[in-house]
Amino acid sequence: MNQKSIAERLFNSVNIGLLLLISALMLFPFLYLFSVSFSSYEDFLGSRLLLWPSNWTTDAYEYIWSSRTFRQALWTTSLVTVLGTLVNLFFTSTMAYALSRPIIGQRSVMFMVVFSLLFSAGMIPTYLVVQATGLLDSIWSLILPVAIAPFNLIVIRQFFLNIPGEMIEAGIVDGANDLQIFYKIILPLSKPALAAFSLFYAVTHWNNYFAPILYINDSSKWTIQVVLRQIVVVGETTGTLGGDNMFAAQPPPPETIQMAAILMATLPILIVYPFLQKHFAKGVMLGAVKG
């Protein structure tokens, strides 16, 4: 009996130890970026494994903020994220509701939706349509071609289907038409679910790198991910941020700029993460119920 409890305890400690190690692997990069980005270059060179800044400096952040390119990219990306999410919500919820009611043609449209999950025309034909609809080099090319994620549509429709039919009937008895029922009964009931999907859509917009490099050539409309790649992955730190920079002093070293840039571009995600987290298990599970 005693032996078993030793084995038990050993199992638990090893398991929790490993899990703590895994968690540390996910958090450590951020701690390191945080420390270096707020440290002076001398401290960074002195001890490469910086875990906390000793001489705090915000030079890297000020330098980045002084760059018009970076601010513009933040602004463009914020605009795309807000507009894009609104478009997503409008297109997805209206269509999902219509498809949750037994209208004629519903099955054909559902087939269209499901089939688009299984087969897509591919990058080039889609590009040609985006071009033909005049969206190239416009922020709408980052919004309209992804107005609906078919999977989200299916899950939200499933959510609408699960709303008791009596709610709708009550609306009909009160003389409401379908638009009023959708707006006054269905939407208020679905607020938590729609909030969850807005967050998911918003994160997707913020993180999108593929669409901007495909559709946007004009560097004044670059999104934050494109600029970030230029700074960090390509390593053109001052080349990207220096041209229109109003920073008064000598630019800080590229290392600290790169780390500060990553944190600035990730900050919005980290801010919404607690809210996301509250919802996403639910969202994913809604999808799993569909089977």
Partner: peptide, 26 residues
């Protein structure tokens, strides 16, 4: 059901323009 079709319309247009017209482009 005309109002339901009205609600369906934007999404349907989206699927036609950005998901199915490209399939013709194949």
């Amino acid at each position: 059901d005309r109002y339901l079709y009205l609600l369906l319309l934007p999404g349907l247009l989206y699927f036609i323009v950005y998901r199915y017209v490209p399939m013709l482009g194949i």
